[in-house]
Design a protein around this nucleic acid. Structure first.
Length: 587
DNA sequence: GCCGTTTTCGGCCCGACTGTTTTCAGTCG
């Protein structure tokens, strides 16, 4: 059982206990433990096999450690099995209804025997819900509307979709004339691969006017809440957008606060406390001061809040990039004054994964080259599919060799101003062999190996296929190593720590595929690769010229993994990459 | 349940908003 699965089981346990009304701090402890295990680069199963003491891990105490042991040994938790006798798993779906938390959901289950969303809808329609203590007609109506939302819009938005919404909101908001300052916060600002909702912070001399204007956003379906400083709307797509209006003097504090992550903020405020300070969205305050008691930045005892960097400085820290605010390494790095200079999109010099009309791309070789040159790249690799991917027009050896001839001629015309690499995205077949003969692969400049078929194989089978490809002398990199499609398909069963270890041993590269549908490897695996000294290649997998701009999503994910330019192989010249592959350069 | 440079017990981030309430609980982020 891998760390992600263990973390998921612990979170499920917390959810069940929460439903039972367990001590909230106990739930938090399980969830912290799950976070810690998910973020660990050491597999729990391996640590236990080596008799390591898990309680030395932050957030893991004796209880969580025992549960890990049970999960690894037996594959399940007796406590979960027992709880599920009492609480049908479908009951947890009730928690997806907006404004329905554990207390209310438990009341519905206990008092009315409601076990799933369908039964909840029926109970609302029959007006049974309003009779319960603490519920009323308005709540009943809100739940009824919420059931539909829970049933359909249960998914987080992919980052590229969030990006489109943000652009539309941006355009709408800037039409408001007295908007002095604004910023999009939340997980969008942290660059997460998916975004649950969108948070906007704004400074204006006319809060009521801004709220009025906000309510005229064309894609809005309803206003969920509206107070003096906060307003929430729901979009036609079901997604929620929160607007918070703050005084200029509090903008930095609010931005820090609403950027999160939650666990990052908890740590920051914990540190503030140790310095007799309190941090909230209005600013940094000296504890016990007039300002703190009144929550008023204008009074004595206000320390900082206008800019985000001031908030960090108030507790003796350098500003931390939002991409790193996941409570992983950032405080350690900040304490040691070793925050990395994160990779920037402008550091990338070449794109080593893209398709043309020769397989399933939409643009020709020449068009891809022209678009890449326009983006300021120095080189690209044309990596069309190999023959096994017949639906995508995968290349036979003959067609591939003809494409390479064409590339040779193109390179002559380019006369050193730009370089096109002779490459292939070669399938790793179900039996572990490569989809093209060795003598063909040996003529390539760059070979990416991919799994597209046999994705239902066992963990051991798929892992062995990939380890075998890593050993192949012509293979340069493994592309989209887990095969996951965000919101559509989970990763295939593959032991990524083993893949990383093998790549390190054989001096091979792993891809961070920038397609917003994939973003594969994810941020945690990228971080793991960095720690193991395995270089990452960030590539677009573009199937059309417009997709070359997806690079920024990959860069963002790499930043979340803590990567600097040095960790990313395609920040180097092609000669530099060849040199690394040949063992003549270091990271 | 976890944790510790105010430490082995007693905390655990903190405020906005809503609805059902006569002063607050629940939910959310």
């Amino acid at each position: 059982m891998d760390n992600a699965k263990i973390a998921e089981r612990l979170e499920h346990l917390a959810a069940l206990l929460e439903f039972q009304g367990a001590n909230p701090f106990r739930l938090k402890a399980y969830r912290n433990g799950a976070d810690s295990i998910r973020a660990s680069s050491i597999p729990v199963a391996k640590a236990l096999a080596e008799n390591q003491d898990l309680t030395t891990w932050v957030g893991v105490g004796s209880s969580v450690a025992e549960k890990c042991r049970e999960l690894v040994d037996t594959g399940s938790l007796a406590q979960i099995d027992q709880l599920e006798q009492e609480i049908p798993p479908t009951v947890l779906d009730l928690l997806r209804v907006p404004n329905l938390g554990p207390k209310k959901a438990a009341a519905l289950f206990k008092e009315l025997g409601i076990k799933d969303l369908d039964q909840l809808k029926l109970a609302c329609e029959q007006q049974k819900v309003r009779a319960l203590k603490g519920f009323g007609a308005k709540t009943e109506q809100a739940i009824l509307e919420g059931v539909l939302i829970a049933a359909q819009a249960n998914q987080r938005m992919r980052i590229n979709d969030a990006d489109k919404v943000v652009r539309a909101l941006q355009e709408h908001l800037t039409k408001f004339e007295v908007l002095e300052r604004h910023e999009f916060a939340g997980s969008y600002r942290r660059g997460k691969e998916t975004v649950g909702d969108i948070d906007i912070l704004a400074v204006t001399s006319d809060p009521a006017g801004l709220m009025e204007h906000f309510a005229t956003f064309p894609d809005m379906s309803s206003v969920l809440a509206r107070g003096e400083t906060k307003m929430s709307i729901r979009l036609d797509t079901g997604f929620q957008v929160d607007l918070r209006i703050v005084p200029a003097v509090s903008f930095g504090a609010a931005l820090q606060y609403f950027t999160g992550s939650l666990t990052h903020n908890v740590e920051l405020r914990h540190r503030a406390k140790a310095r007799q300070l309190k941090i909230n969205e209005w600013g940094v305050f000296r504890v016990g001061s007039e300002a703190e008691l009144a929550n008023d930045p204008q009074r004595e005892g206000w320390v900082a809040g206008r800019d985000e960097a001031d908030v960090y400085a108030a507790v003796g820290l350098p500003w931390i990039d939002p991409r790193l605010r996941e409570m992983r390494d950032e405080f350690q790095w900040a304490d040691a004054n070793q925050l990395p200079r994160l990779l920037q999109t402008s550091d990338i010099r070449g794109d080593l994964h893209m398709h043309t009309t020769a397989s399933d791309g939409e643009n020709s070789l020449e068009e891809m080259v022209a678009a890449a040159r326009q983006r300021g790249l120095d080189y690209i690799a044309i990596t069309d599919h190999s023959q096994r991917v017949s639906v995508a027009g995968g290349l036979t050896p003959e067609r591939l060799l003809r494409q390479w001839d064409e590339i040779d001629r193109l390179n002559e015309r380019l006369a050193g101003e730009f370089l096109v690499l002779k490459s292939i995205e070669c399938d790793i077949l179900e039996d572990g062999r490569m989809d093209l003969p060795d003598d063909v692969l040996a003529q390539a400049d760059w070979v990416m190996a991919s799994v597209h078929f046999g994705i239902k194989q066992t963990r051991d089978e798929i892992t062995q296929r990939i380890l075998g490809a890593i050993e192949h002398p012509s293979v340069s990199a493994i592309s989209h190593p887990t095969g996951r499609l965000i919101n559509r398909r989970p990763a295939y069963e593959v032991d990524i720590p083993a893949v990383i270890e093998h790549a390190a041993k054989h001096r091979k590269i792993l891809e961070l595929n920038s397609s917003p549908k994939r973003l594969d490897l994810d941020d945690l695996h990228v971080r793991m690769a960095r720690m193991a000294g395995v270089p990452i290649v960030i590539s677009t997998d573009a199937h059309a010229v417009a997709q070359l701009e997806n690079l920024r999503f990959g860069v963002q994910q790499a930043q979340r993994g803590g990567l600097s330019a040095q960790h990313v192989i395609n920040t180097r010249s092609w000669d530099g990459i060849k040199s690394w592959l040949a063992g003549n350069a270091t990271l």
